[in-house]
Design a protein around this nucleic acid. Sequence first.
RNA 1: CGGGGUGUAGCGCAGUUGGUAGCGCGCUUGGUUCGGGACCAAGAGGCCGGGUGUUCAAGUCACCUCACUCCGACCA
Length: 476
Amino acid sequence: MDNKQFVKEIADIEKDFPQWYTDVIMKTELVDYGPVKGTMVIRPYGYAIWENIQRELDARFKATGVKNAYFPMFIPKSFLEKEAEHVEGFAPEVAVVTHAGGKELEEPLIVRPTSETIICAMYSKWLKSYRDLPILINQWANVVRWEKTTRPFLRTSEFLWQEGHTVHASEQEALDETILMLNVYKEFAENVLAIPVLTGKKTEKEKFAGAVATFGMEAMMLDGKSLQAGTSHYLGQNFAKASNMKFLDKDGVLKYGYSSSWGVSTRLIGALIMAHGDQRGLVLPPKVAPIQVIIIPVAAHNGGVLEKVAELETALKNAGIRVEADVRDMSPGWKFNEWEMKGVPVRIEVGPRDIENNQCMLLRRDTLDKKAISLDGLVETIKAELDDAQKNMLEKSRKMRDERIVTATSVEEILQAVENKCFVKADWCGCRECEDKIKEETQASSRVLADGERVTGKCAVCGKEAKYTVYYARAY
RNA sequence: CGGGGUGUAGCGCAGUUGGUAGCGCGCUUGGUUCGGGACCAAGAGGCCGGGUGUUCAAGUCACCUCACUCCGACCA
């Protein structure tokens, strides 16, 4: 760990955002760089965040009837080539295995960039009757995409994610599932990650390769850029046809199934860092924090301090709180800074003076407020503080985001808005040329289509009748 | 794939006109400390990214190469 305190002004954070982001990740020991370029090693502290995300998401999936399964990471190259748009979208970034067992393979294997092809191939074997539907399966896995430039959590050559793949008897059912999962993601992002998100349909340009329609959730980072934090795709019969996935329906007719797929990745950890971080480092919402409460003894050489610390730790642990006591032999100030940098939501200090007064000091990471609290009813107090921190972080993020969503009626206004680190809501005629022009002149891309009222009713680029209202932003 | 930057101790860096390796932090041992990154003393730790060349002599100069990193184009 670097000896210097990791403190930057907010202005510096925005100015040096990529560097700040990388520094936070490295100094908080979330990851290390892997020996292969573009790969990362997720260290225990970072992985614990992922485990909490997994646990919370898994419970939500299961509540909708989804079950977990696992499919192979190697996919015959020919599988990928079955769906025309899909292969075009992914071919440039797949890793291919050509040799194994000491000889050249007859058919090269691709390392999955996503598993639609292999999962649909298996589903086509399993699916016989309408009674087999719906198929609702999720897998937790790693995927490989050989991107040109990489950044820890946001874009790495290999990343962890979950991918849900469902098949349904009708278009409507599959579309309902797509939207249902999008809403699961939204609820999860807001209530667990404390990150408000915009959800909606993506434009054709931003659509998943092979999908009929893609829906996404977009989160605003501290620097005003948008991060695609999750996607849910309605695949229609595209993959069903490509892998001959048919079932005999009630009416005795052999039909193709309708499928959906949806996923979120370890990128969510990147979103947490960039949405909540401050000049001291990470700020983690309690529900995903590996350590929710850190207890730091002060003047530990004095009799009774360590005993009291252990007593409080046990009490909190028994109440189901993720708590640790930092009893290392170093100055308290050092520990304060380290655990603040690591984003622990609540810190408790216990020293001789506190014990005398039957109290302890409590510091909230999200507000940096420090106060004395009684040791009577400590568990309840801490629980309330954790709940409040969770709520406060969402409110704070939502307020910041809402203040930075503006409307625009021209390309110039869009440019000005994104320069001011804002999301932009603008009308759009629906043509690709206008979308490309905005990207070219402002570096902002369409994020999702917005519901509700038009801004002016005219396309912000060409002035023709608007078919859509779109959120634009610069994006990661 | 284009443009910049950096490679010297675990981390962060110095290293002058070429003369054979330094600082801070961390680490180890002992002692004093402990309410916002403590202090003293003694230690351990190096293929100067790699290669070739110039030279009596290269961390330093030249050429090549590799890696990392930032900024663009492409993307979860």
